[in-house]
Design a protein around this nucleic acid. Structure first.
Lengths: 190, 190
DNA sequence: ACATCTCATCCTACTAGAAGGTAGGCGGAC
DNA sequence: GTCCGCCTACCTTCTAGTAGGATGAGATGT
């Protein structure tokens, strides 16, 4: 797998952001992990704000693409939801990337560069719309019984997932994620 | 209102932690807000780790005391839950302290001093137990219909609240908090 | 074929400022 | 008098960011 230095930097930076947020890492950390000198990182990404902005842009794009193709490859809305939740469960269990980059950054949104904050908001909006569409379709097909509008139920589900990621992280208990989200999904099913 | 310098420092530090987490503020920030020199803060709190530890200790203690007295003063479990959620709704609407200190710190728990991390976990545990007790009592009295064990439902509710706080912050929309949590509570009611 | 031109990458070496933290002194209250 | 709170002055380390040079590969000119 050929991977450019820029991509290595982005990958390392992403895992550092997931671990500790925008102010939780420095160019020195990236430098150590990638095996490149600090100044070389500035060659690829002149400022930290720009690095994180590119990073989040890539993340948002990948997420959007993932959700889009998920809806194309899986037809049943219930299975689409399972796949979405399953993705996070896998991340938490593997302890690979056990938190959403945008959820992490959202918590410190007041301190973020404006461009990054806007990207984070856009991701939340995208995800909310995707979930709302899935829920609405599922309701029409009779697989879900919603007790509120698709948009509201989507926001509730999103909050559950992010809250569950947080709880799992706080307790250091990966299984907790599924224990929280799974019954939440069950309540939606008819 | 007589307020000691230590308490002023703790208050300012708490609002800074809520805004940007452990790595999102410095002694210089506190210094500017309190009107005291940087070194004077070290007189009260020798290290940043200690400052935050005291801060979180105070927060956890206040929270525990609040929940305890809430259960004493309000007898109906449904009202207890409303009061708990209402507390956060008020915080979000006032934009005063629109996030839980421990939820904020939990997201960056991997980088926290061990002592602080332990306190954060303890608060999550306390809150979970309190919610579980309230839910269990409510179920016995017939005010709630739980679709899982009280402990699991408590974790779900906790995740909803924290996720809702995050969403409200991300979108900069205070009303969103109630829009997410309120239907969640409604689902519990018989 | 060869020289060279250009460009991207990465390096060494550096800066200014902010970070957390220390040492020691001043002044007022008990 | 001595202890507490706060100050001035300082230190070290880390921060993001800069300047400029070495290397090497690809394109271009002759």
């Amino acid at each position: 797998m050929e991977q450019s230095t820029s991509e290595k930097i982005l990958d390392v930076a992403q895992s550092l952001v997931v671990a500790g947020g925008y102010n939780g890492f420095s160019y020195a950390d990236i430098s150590a992990a990638v095996g490149i000198h600090k100044a070389s990182i500035h060659h690829h990404f002149p400022t930290k704000a720009e690095l994180v902005s590119v990073l989040v842009g890539r993340y948002v794009r990948q997420a959007q693409e993932g959700l889009r193709s998920l809806r194309q490859q899986v037809s049943d809305p219930a299975e689409q939801l399972d796949a979405y939740v399953g993705y996070w469960q896998k991340c938490v269990l593997d302890d690979a990337e056990p938190f959403c980059v945008c959820a992490m950054l959202a918590s410190e949104i007041q301190l973020l560069p404006d461009a990054v904050a806007a990207q984070v908001r856009a991701h939340f909006r995208n995800l909310g719309e995707w979930l709302a569409t899935v829920l609405e379709t599922g309701e029409e097909q009779g697989s879900f019984r919603l007790s509120a509008s698709p948009e509201e139920e989507a926001q509730m589900l999103m909050a559950s997932v992010h809250g569950a990621l947080l709880s799992a992280r706080a307790f250091g208990d990966a299984k907790l994620f599924f224990a929280i989200v799974s019954p939440q999904l069950a309540k939606l099913r008819t």
